[in-house]
Design a protein around this nucleic acid. Sequence first.
RNA 1: GGUCUCGUGGCCGAGUGGCUAGGCGGUGGUCUGCAAAACCAUACACAGCGGUUCGAAUCCGCUCGAGACCUCCA
Length: 490
Amino acid sequence: MQNKLFIYNTLSRKKELFEPVNSPFVGMYVCGPTVYGDAHLGHARPAITFDLLFRYLKHLGYKVRYVRNITDVGHLVNDADSGEDKIQKKARLDQLEPMEVVQRYVNSFHNNMNQLNTLPPSIEPRASGHIIEQQQMVAQILKNGFAYEINGSVYFDIEKYNQKYNYGKLSGRVLEDLLNNTRALDGQEEKKNPFDFALWKKADPEHIMHWPSKWSEGYPGWHLECSVMSTKYLGDTFDIHGGGMDLVFPHHECEIAQSVAASGHDAVKYWVHNNMITINGQKMGKSLGNFITLNDLFSGENELLGKKFSPMAIRFFILQAHYRSTLDFSSDAIYAAEKGLHKLFAGIETLNKITVSEKSSVDVKSLEQKCKDALNDDLNSPILISHLFDGIKIINSIDKGKNTISKDDLVLLKKIYNVFVFDILGLNQETDCGSNDLLDKAVDAILNMRLDAKKRKDFELSDKIRDELFKIGLVIKDKKDGFEWEITRQ
RNA sequence: GGUCUCGUGGCCGAGUGGCUAGGCGGUGGUCUGCAAAACCAUACACAGCGGUUCGAAUCCGCUCGAGACCUCCA
């Protein structure tokens, strides 16, 4: 294996050599959204991070099955195990059928994910479609003695589990410490222990999303769906489980406990977590209300923005930071990313024009190696991008005649940009959305008249044309033998 | 309060015990009728104080500051 991918495993807190359980097959499960609102910038991060991983693993030749769930039931608004279902709440507020809410936001999510050019997962299972499987897992955990039933609800018995296994190994928590520092929460009377969590919850009379079971008319607990759906589609033991860092505790910790309690062994080999996007240094999140939806970013309709940003600018913005670092949002930061992306694509256009020589005065092979090394080092996309910018400098120097490139090297150089920029980073060149054939011809006609004016040295007229076009959003770029123009984004 | 993470130049953001990160912005230049765009070249940094070391921004300790998780959260 020439490529050795190292990936940071939250479980060991180390970068580990990636070796699939059953090579060349790779199973990857990523926690998807709870669909009760439009996706915001925070949702874009795991989507893009694991899209990058998905693409890179495929590039390395693995057969990857990528499963990302849709949570359409079971998450509660308030305290753990009491309170109202988020989707139900939203349905009540909007006077919609719960599944209507789900469908609306699933559609919106898919649309946003397409805009960001993330590849669709291989399987996108929904919690509501796996109620029976979840009940089966609850039964198995009960049978194994790590859960108890009370008043029609079933709770996971943390203390019992911790006697035999280690609850807290993912998040580095110690159960005793947790117990000593518990906040007082309401609605926990039924539980033996505050850290016990619901596997099955009896529905209150007003609760409209519920299913029959042998314990009660109720609904599944909020950690269960991932344990169930990941192993159902990826097998008892699979390679990668991903998600946001905020899910490490308690969500993923509980998932581990459930899986181990049910099957006796861990299901996941590598736990991979992306960090948060912050705004003014603080986590962007639904509950804090400081989030910006992707739709707002793309349309510019937000006070914080002052300008709209293309999906690719957002994608590039996220890829310019390492996935395990926080990334601070600001309009300026995304603007900078957008400009950088423009420069990258301009360089690639130049690459497609440069001419070959007998020999190369540049080292293309080492550029390729640096790009590979960057990704192999825990998906270091910012380093990869910095090398790609170095390459752009080389491309420009060849174009200007300061360096030369051989035919073979040019082929390789083009391959590098195709593979890394388009295939792996998943960037694409967006077509000008406002552009069309008629507009192209009209602007060309005007600019040809401007060219005539310039030849007559009628600069007053030519400048006026340039200024007027600029005002309506067109930038004119004069060239030695003509002109180019493009639409500026507002 | 407990556990953990982080503090890099105007901004975003890599990295690391000795070798330029990169992008945006700034400045200077090439180009241009002038601009713009593009390209080239540059300056600006490692929170503070100690310690380890031939050498630390990088390791250790302390101080200050910010944040995450402990409740749904990507």
